[in-house]
Nucleic acid binder design. Structure first.
Lengths: 327, 327
DNA sequence: TTGTAAGCGTTATCAA
DNA sequence: TTGATAACGCTTACAA
């Protein structure tokens, strides 16, 4: 069986309390006993049982992460940074892929509470899961309003939409079409659409937004892109709400022998490392993923430590326009 | 404070034991008390403390995942499936991004043991971490030999290398160059290289492999690709050991006005969802990521349940050649 | 069918 | 400077 404090104590000829003191560096311990204890721990290959420890101190150093999928480039990169930062602060991470399914999300929420996580960081496309209003459990949303009292971290989606649209207009485009997810979700990402429509109107241009459903397959997205080209042969720019969709536009345009950027300009959104690696030619609006992760962890830790005072409810980080070869 | 079994018991007018029995469906309980207990749990919004439970039953239903990064398309997708399957079997997942750093990996290994995980699934490029030989702790490697006794799951890397090389030869290529990671790592992925070299020689062609270092930046990879074109102006095919590298080849070729696939054929490796979305034109060898995850979880669960008998040490799953537009 | 009591491995309190 | 003891919230003998 695994050695426990008692075993170490016996071997070192001291009491369990003393071993615990050595482990946690608490109280006075003579150098001699400290050495004895350390030797015994080494000899037995002892390491403390965090479960027992958590039970007593009522703190697990666990943080739950609920996101649609690690397979999505944006979330994959975001989760990488979240885990990294948590780990550097002594926190561990329980991973949950909600797949944008409310039932899954609810189950995960319950599971995380049963496992006594110290906090939850969540970002997903569903709205209105009242279960997030958990008394005393710190929660932070990323790009998503979980409840009126939950702090949210996101990048400046309105500014991003503005920058993208303005860039296309500045380059002389007149028929600019936008592709975005469902509007009813009221996610911060919808601000990109608002910005697009505002900027278009301010420039006396007619905004046209194509919506794709929440759970779109590859094919559905491609069909929407085709639809756009069929409906609007004169289109000279497309602003897609994410890079994967922009890549579909690029491909369909190539198929139709529309040269980019001469006859059609395309800009995406997200600018993940994977996109920048695989499609560096794509112009895009880069989200500060690492900074979003840093801010979210900072807030959750503050909540955990009871430093409520200087937590802002809305935390908006600046985006960066990448004017590459498709614009 | 959070309600505990005792609170539920008091409210229901029964003993803690009875509540525990209701929770775990053990022993005989009258319908009347069962209802009373359920009502009390509802009223108090009670849910059991898994930490306390784990401590007693000496089982956490936790599985540790150690992989380089969720941000990498292959690992992101793999981890998505691993978590999914674990979750469906009642297991939770502790996520660790090792970033291919031995020191991090060692720390994570210790952390996971301290947290009493029931098992570990790991895949990363370092070799020889003897700490993986943990007495009685179930471990499974993915695409990686962790120790002589640790089961490994991988796709058929040799067959994949063979399929890719043979395809290029069948299409008439003569100067086929291979790009791969460092050979000293002895990962299963190195079999792709062996297959390439074997098939080349069997066809009386000269195998040339360019190696990139373990921790390559974007720029290093691009420079290697440039080097290849400079060193071998006659090259008519490139087989890259992963899709990200293949995408760099595509781009450099385009820059040099080399038309694909007429003057140069390119094939990658992995075929993740993200690649298939962003670069569907890229020919590649698709790994059965979901099946790899399923096999790995199956094995770890068997180990956890002590069903050692029918566990194979080597588990090799078939790959699929995708002959798209770059070959 | 239900209850009492002990113990999982740790830490904090208090006393020595 | 060290040790005995109780407690964290749960489950399981054993008893009733």
């Amino acid at each position: 069986m695994k050695p426990k404090i008692e075993d170490v104590a016996k071997l070192a000829g001291v009491s369990p309390t003393t071993v615990s003191r050595v482990l946690n560096n608490r109280g006075y311990i003579s150098e001699k006993t400290r050495k004895k204890v350390h030797d015994s721990m080494e000899q037995l290959n002892y390491y403390p049982n965090e479960i027992a420890r958590s039970l007593f101190i009522k703190k697990t150093y666990l943080i739950g992460l609920i996101f649609p999928s690690t397979g999505h480039p944006f979330y994959g990169q975001l989760i990488f940074h979240l885990e990294n930062i948590c780990s550097s602060l002594g926190y561990k991470v329980l991973l949950c892929n909600s797949q944008n399914r409310e039932d899954k999300e609810r189950n995960y929420l319950k599971m995380l509470q049963m496992n006594q996580v110290d906090g939850i960081i969540a970002g997903a496309h569903n709205r209105g899961i009242e279960e997030y209003e958990i008394p005393k459990l710190p929660v932070v949303g990323i790009d998503r309003n979980l409840s009126s009292k939950t702090p949210v971290v996101s990048s400046d989606n309105y500014e991003g939409g503005k920058l993208a649209t303005q860039l296309l207009i500045d380059k002389g485009c007149k028929q600019i079409i936008h592709i975005n997810g469902p509007q009813y979700l009221e996610t911060p990402a919808n601000l990109r659409r608002n910005a697009y429509e505002d900027v278009m109107r301010a420039n006396k241009l007619n905004p046209i937004t194509y919506e794709f459903p929440l759970k779109s397959t590859d094919e559905i997205v491609i069909n929407i892109v085709k639809q756009i080209f069929d409906d609007h042969p004169q289109v000279d720019a497309i602003f897609a709400s994410d890079d994967l969709i922009a890549s579909k536009v690029l491909r369909e345009a190539r198929k139709r022998n529309i040269t980019i950027p001469q006859h059609l300009k395309v800009i995406g959104y997200d600018g993940t490392e994977t996109t920048r690696m695989m499609l560096p030619e794509l112009s895009t609006v880069e989200q500060p993923i690492k900074e979003i992760a840093e801010k979210a962890v900072e807030i959750i830790i503050k909540q955990i430590n009871g430093e409520q005072e200087d937590i802002q409810l809305e935390n908006i980080l600046p985006v960066k326009l990448i004017d590459s070869e498709t614009t």
